[in-house]
Design a protein around this nucleic acid. Structure first.
Length: 447
RNA sequence: UCCUCGGUAGCUCAAUUGGCAGAGCGACCGGCUGUUAACCGGUUGGUUCCUGGUUCGAGUCCAGGCCGAGGAGCCA
């Protein structure tokens, strides 16, 4: 009895008779010769049927097998440079083939260009296509390496709630839901405040889960449901935070490079752009970034870009600013020291510059922009209380958060990494809706 | 919420000044021994987003609406 193989490991079985279980991705009929491109979940393998080698009835079946039919194939593995696939270069000479289900011939996704709305409506089928399959495999590897790095560098996973009593940061719009007799609960937009409690028990922690924003954002960088990992560290200042981030991000990219070569090349990703990603990353202050933007603005001939890049000290960067800044570097770039007014209430002020916060965003290169946002947090209870009042937040709801500064307060820092934006950058694709299996956007909750 | 663009066959798109609704792909049938979304021939395929208006005549012009895409703001 031949043994079952996975497409990804086919190279290890050259000369052997093996069994492959999967689905017909494409069929090319050449008369006395038929090529089937079979996907099995682990890759795509070409299987070849010659009329002279097979029973006429079986050959006719293979010649007419519809796209996406499920099959069990027995065949002999051989190396052939002409064979397409992921990874390509090997093919199966078909000895026998059993159809588990023959599709009626009405599979909606033809092998041709499609519009994004059509593909989104068929997301449950779209994920079978090589590009989407490759992206989601890379996503899985990215998530795995995020957890691997944190777990092996002293961080404890401490889960934070998804149903929360109020806005963590009080600014962005939240999804609300009825919560028994307790009134309204909200879907979490961040686990950070809970992380800050957790570091006083565990030192270094992270939470990792879906987060929700009810913002009516309609861009290639936004989802209403997305995944975020948020590490938080006690006894950590802004400089140490940046060192942690660059180690962490570099590990994630390098492991994707090692383990997802076939997927990245299926996406035609420029590998060399990723090979450069290792510490240290450039660091630019907000003030320096403003100067660089002013230079770019002075040099551009494009009146539209000139207008988009207009910015005054105190404004947060918009995506045009981020995009232009990242073009100046071949690695992710830290921009630190944003104006306090543009950032959240809990951020530690810069020494001797109260209008500047000890905040840092990491902007991915090639125009991808912000993938992490972090800061050193306020550790003084009086200052924190003052900020809560300035932002007109409900003091009573933040009692527990203020307690953290009363019982053993220490300098501490943390950041949040957007998984989908990171995957989009690593994959080199232009819209994050393809980086999550079932994207949730302002006008899409199906399928 | 604002700006720009779009909606025609299952899919991707054409349709001249307002004058017979078209092509490619898919599906189905046939041909082809190395295809890479094969190629060639044939068959099949329509509420032109909706409502109203102008006109002898509307896919095309006008008004209102619906849906989608890209961008802005906001953010990861």
């Amino acid at each position: 009895m031949p043994s079952m193989v996975r497409a990804a490991e086919i190279a290890e079985h050259v000369g052997e008779e093996v069994i492959l279980k999967g689905w017909v991705y494409n069929r090319t009929h050449k008369g006395k010769l038929v090529f089937l491109l079979i996907r099995d979940g682990y890759g795509f393998v070409q299987c070849v049927a010659f009329e002279r080698d097979l029973d006429p009835e079986l050959f006719d079946t293979i010649a007419h097998i519809p796209q996406e039919s499920s099959v069990v194939i027995t065949g002999q593995v051989r190396a052939d440079g002409r064979a397409p696939g992921i990874p390509g270069g090997y093919e199966l000479g078909i000895i026998s083939l059993e159809i588990i289900q023959s599709v009626a011939g009405d599979y909606p996704i033809a092998l041709k260009e499609h519009g994004v709305d059509f593909l989104s409506d068929h997301r449950h089928l779209w994920i079978r296509m090589p590009s989407q399959w490759a992206i989601l495999r890379i996503r899985a590897t990215v998530i795995s390496s995020i957890r691997e790095w944190l777990d092996s560098n002293g961080f404890t996973l401490v889960d934070t709630p998804i149903l929360t009593p109020a806005a963590c940061e009080g600014t962005t719009t939240l999804f609300a839901t009825e919560y028994f007799d307790e009134g309204t609960a909200y879907l979490a937009q961040s686990g950070q405040l809970y992380n800050e409690a957790n570091i006083f028990a565990f030192g270094k922690v992270y939470c990792f889960g879906p987060t929700f924003r009810a913002e009516k954002s309609k861009t290639r960088r936004h989802l209403t449901e997305f995944w975020m990992v948020e590490p938080e560290m006690a006894f950590c200042d802004l400089e140490q935070l940046m060192e942690i981030e660059e180690q962490f991000i570099s590990h994630v990219v390098q492991r994707a490079l090692r383990e997802c070569r076939a997927e990245l090349s299926a996406l035609e990703r420029d590998i060399s752009a990723l090979e450069r990603i290792e510490p240290p990353f450039p660091r630019v202050s907000y003030d320096e970034a403003l100067e660089k933007l002013a230079e770019i603005r002075a040099q551009t001939e494009d009146p539209e870009l000139k207008e988009l890049l207009e910015i005054a000290w105190g404004d947060d960067f918009g995506s045009p600013h981020e995009t232009e800044l990242t073009k100046l570097f071949q690695k992710p770039v830290f921009v630190y020291g944003y104006p306090a007014a543009a950032k959240a209430f809990y951020m530690e002020p810069w020494p001797d510059r109260p209008d500047v916060s000890k905040s840092v965003d990491l902007l991915a290169p090639e125009g991808y922009g912000e993938i992490t946002g972090g800061s050193e947090r306020i550790s003084d209870p009086e200052l924190l209380l003052q900020r809560i009042r300035e932002h007109q937040l409900p003091e009573d709801s933040f009692r527990w958060y203020i307690d953290l500064r009363r019982y053993g307060s220490v300098p501490h820092s943390g950041f949040g990494l957007g998984v989908e934006r990171t995957v989009a950058w690593i994959c080199g694709i232009d819209h994050i809706r393809e980086t999550i299996p079932y994207p949730r956007m302002i006008n899409r909750v199906y399928p």
